[in-house]
């Protein structure tokens, strides 16, 4: 067997239908962006609703780590005043 190099990894995001968000679908190996796009089309858009593809080199993604979840996301859940239920309005008044 010849020595095999492995093409770099690209993460693939698909948009399934107009106005939908791009969502992570999986990854492909490819030599460059164009190749990644072709592979992503063949693997993640074989049928159905995909209207747009993004391919992103894995190295370009910075991800939060599970250990940071507390400091990063806890502040989001202890501020009740960010939610509409925090506020009282007079009975019978239609706010929306």
């Amino acid at each position: 067997m010849s020595t095999e190099t492995q093409w770099p990894l690209w993460e693939v995001f698909t948009q399934e239908g107009d106005a939908a968000p791009h969502e992570h679908a999986g990854s492909v190996h490819a030599v460059d962006a164009e190749h990644a796009m072709q592979n992503a089309r063949d693997i993640y858009a074989r049928r159905g609703k995909v209207v747009s593809l993004w391919v992103v080199p894995l190295d370009a993604i910075t991800a939060s780590s599970p250990g940071d979840a507390g400091p990063l996301f806890d502040p989001g859940s202890d501020k009740a005043y960010r939610h509409p239920q925090f506020y009282k309005s007079p009975r019978g008044v239609k706010i929306f």
């Binding site: 999986g26 990854s27 063949d42 074989r46």
Partner: peptide, 13 residues
């Protein structure tokens, strides 16, 4: 072709 795709989904997983 689908089966080839299935292999690739799981390899990437």
């Amino acid at each position: 072709q689908d089966e080839g795709g299935h292999g690739l989904y799981i390899y990437c997983g």
